[in-house]
């Protein structure tokens, strides 16, 4: 029997999730929900999927095994809560919630109800970042000294834009939208941040939200490093996320396409030479059955479906991990207020 899935929110991410879910061999995408009539009209005309304006009606009418929630961040809390109470497994878009009080409640509810819970931090499913995590764990560059986590892109290109992403009450802004990805990577690959210092949140083109975030993070293992994120940098064609990690025995620079390793001495066990070794995504990408915009988007849904099928909670991007990212966002906001620029 195929799993029955639904998608709430058909913006850029939701529609892409719907396409990927729709091609999964173990799934029937039975229902989608959105409040924008133009999108529902397209589905009505060209597909057989059942359509809803109201997510509560969708949960009441459909006997779903899982739901993908890709609405503005403010709506994650009520929707995820409703799904969990209906005993539906949830894949939620990032960032998880508007604050950690909401997130904690959802995380506990998911665990209490024994439901598979995952948040869409898709970088964790990019082959290069997985390889970076493995290499850091294996200690190839020795004791860590410093890190830089960066993301740049050109999402905001003029002062006129106005979707939910430029509204702080909806969970918009560069810190929530862009920086959350980098924080999550730092947290899962290097260590959990416990303190933010020297935070700068800068408005460049937006009026109500930050367009750039710079902050110094200290991790639970004592290591410190820098977060640098800007989403109105036109020198980038699309979002570019990278981590640079300096160790006593070398350095690694990693982004979605390549991982560059510099070692002071060779590492025979890893087959790494002294000096530079470059590994490419062509060798590291996770194979998928359907590709839309990147293997990682399919790989994360494949993983979520597999966890449901095996009734085994994910170790990648659980609510608990995403909740921690929300907590780091709170640390950064709190520090920026202290710095009197938030």
């Amino acid at each position: 029997m195929k799993l029955k899935g639904g998608v709430i929110g058909l913006g850029k991410m939701g529609i892409s999730h719907a396409a990927i879910v729709g091609t999964h061999p173990s799934v029937d995408l039975v229902a989608v929900c959105d409040t924008t009539s133009i999108v529902l009209d397209v589905f009505k005309k060209f597909s057989n999927i059942r359509l809803y304006h109201d997510y509560i009606k969708m949960f009441e009418n459909e006997n779903l095994d899982f739901v993908v929630i890709a609405t503005p961040t403010r709506l994650h809390y009520p929707m995820v809560k409703y799904a969990l109470n209906k005993k539906v497994n949830v894949l939620c878009e990032k960032p998880f919630c508007m604050n950690s009080i909401e997130g904690s409640e959802l995380e506990q509810l998911a665990v209490k109800n024994g439901l598979i819970n995952q948040v869409s931090y898709h970088n964790q499913f990019i082959g290069t970042f997985r390889e970076l995590k493995r290499l850091i764990k294996s200690g190839v560059i020795g004791e860590l000294v410093h890190f830089t986590g960066e993301a740049y892109g050109n999402v905001i290109t003029d002062e006129k834009g106005g979707t939910w992403r430029s509204d702080p009450k909806e969970g918009g802004g560069c810190l929530f939208d862009y920086a959350s990805h980098v924080i999550n990577l730092v947290q899962e690959i290097i260590g959990r941040p416990v303190r933010a210092n020297g935070t700068l949140r800068k408005k460049i083109l937006s009026k109500g939200v930050d367009d750039a975030v710079y902050s110094m993070l200290t991790l639970e293992n004592g290591l410190s490093g820098v977060l640098m994120v800007n989403w109105c940098d036109q020198t980038y064609r699309k979002m570019s996320t990278s981590l640079t990690i300096q160790g006593k025995k070398g350095k690694i620079i990693c982004d979605a396409t390549e991982i560059k390793i510099y070692l002071h001495e060779p590492q025979i066990r890893e087959g790494l030479d002294k000096g530079w070794t470059i590994k490419y995504i062509t060798d590291l990408a996770i194979p998928v059955n359907f590709y839309l915009r990147g293997e990682e988007y399919s790989a994360q849904i494949d993983h979520f479906i597999e966890c449901i099928a095996q009734k085994k909670q994910t170790e990648i991007n659980s609510f608990e991990q995403a909740l921690y990212t929300d907590k780091v966002i709170e640390m950064i906001i709190k520090d920026s207020k202290l710095q009197n620029n938030g």
């Binding site: 529609i15 892409s16 719907a18 396409a19 990927i20 729709g22 091609t23 397209v42 589905f43 060209f46 597909s47 057989n48 359907f290 590709y291 839309l292 915009r293």
Partner: peptide
């Protein structure tokens, strides 16, 4: 491809 594969995934083949 992004548009083709989106339409393909959503099974809106008549497009």
């Amino acid at each position: 491809n992004v548009l083709v594969d989106l339409i393909l995934g959503l099974k809106m083949i008549t497009v």
